[in-house]
């Protein structure tokens, strides 16, 4: 545990949000099985990395570009993140729109494509501060996985971000698997973080099951970014404790003994130990926190399912204005049914 100096109240809040993230995620998994939500990716194993990072950032200044596994753990950035993500998962087109002032982008499904966006945005924030002759106080944190790091976008972003001294933090969550492909088949590098050396930026590997270790690393990278010293790469090592998505069957490829060992280092267990060490944990408190998370999720689901869906929304967000052909298609929509 890195930052023993962190306030008890903060540690408690982090643990609550980690517990809640898993509750939210498991509910989404079940909703998919009930035919009420589409394909979605469980968070199990990534809670410490997401929540640790979220607490090291400033929700009023910094931006987060998630992949498709993080949105259940970003409650710190605002209630809308989960509410809209649930809406997204049930298939409502408004789910991709996270309203201002929340500084979280919608889920990114295409692998690594958000990294050049994160770089461009970080560069833009820096330029904006320069143009307004004020110090930059914002950074951009982008999540990426071990598998996606094999895409060209990862290498191009790393190189370019360093050249620009962009205030960017790349948080590479190494959860061991890209669907069925183990991290050992993605790279021969000893760590993913050592790739940073070739980019010309610092790279560190941290225990991704330990929210406080992630917090510490992200805090340091953020400080560096805002000081104008450039981007950082952080590799957080954890283990994917659930299927890749609702469409996956990991029993076909994950060695059971490996999974059992990983469960010993479940991020929730690790944080619970820290809570106990600080005398913050009790069975009643945890039970109450879980009930609260359940209720929170129930509200989000009910609100999402009650939100009206205009079938013509099919045509709403293609262009600012409908083209003539789209106008005709909309006029004829539903004709002859």
């Amino acid at each position: 545990m890195a930052l023993v100096g962190l306030d008890d109240s903060v540690v408690k809040e982090m643990y609550s949000q980690m517990l809640a993230a898993r509750v939210f995620s498991q509910r989404l998994f079940n909703l998919q099985r009930q035919g009420r939500a589409g394909t979605n990716a469980p968070v199990d194993g990534n809670e410490a990395t997401i929540v640790g990072a979220a607490f090291a950032l400033d929700p009023e200044r910094d931006w987060v570009l998630p992949q498709y596994r993080e949105l259940v753990g970003l409650e710190r950035f605002g209630k809308d993140v989960l509410d809209r993500y649930v809406l997204f998962c049930i298939g409502h087109p408004d789910g991709g729109h996270i309203p201002e002032p929340v500084r979280v982008w919608p889920p990114q499904i295409s692998l690594a494509t958000q990294l050049p966006h994160a770089l461009g945005m970080a560069w833009g924030l820096k330029r904006e501060a320069e143009m307004e002759s004020r110090p930059n106080e914002s950074c951009v944190l982008a999540f990426i996985g071990d598998g996606a790091s094999s895409e060209g976008d990862f290498y191009e972003t790393g190189n370019f971000a360093a050249v620009l001294d962009a205030p960017l933090v790349i948080l590479l969550v190494n959860n061991g698997w890209a669907i069925s492909t183990p991290a050992s088949s993605q790279t021969r590098a000893k760590t993913f973080s050592e790739k940073a050396k070739g980019f010309g930026m610092p790279g560190v590997t941290v225990d991704g099951t330990d929210a406080l270790a992630v917090f510490d690393a992200v805090k340091e990278a953020r400080t560096r970014a805002i000081a104008g010293a450039g981007p950082s790469l952080i590799e957080a090592i954890t283990y994917r404790l659930a299927p890749h998505t609702t469409a996956d069957d990991p029993t076909r490829y994950v060695p059971p003994e490996e999974l059992a060992a990983a469960r010993e280092r479940d991020p929730l267990t690790v944080m619970k130990s820290e809570m106990e060490r600080r005398g913050l944990w009790s069975e009643d408190w945890e039970a109450a926190t879980l009930v609260q998370a359940d209720e929170r999720m129930e509200q989000a689901v009910l609100a999402a399912e009650a939100r009206p869906l205009d079938p013509e929304s099919l045509f709403h967000h293609v262009f600012d204005e409908l083209t003539p052909r789209l106008s005709r298609q909309r006029q004829n929509f539903g004709a002859g049914r």
């Binding site: 589409g38 997204f88 049930i90 298939g91 409502h92 087109p93 869906l309 079938p311 929304s313 099919l314 045509f315 293609v318 083209t323 052909r325 789209l326 298609q329 929509f333 004709a335 002859g336 049914r337």
Partner: peptide, 25 residues
């Protein structure tokens, strides 16, 4: 297909791509 990105909800996805009744029509 209708000239929109293919939507996620089942009924809108069905509505976006050609169905039997569209071909008959």
């Amino acid at each position: 297909s209708r000239e929109v990105p293919i939507p996620y909800p089942r009924h809108l996805e069905d509505a976006a791509i050609p169905q039997v009744h569209d071909i008959v029509a």
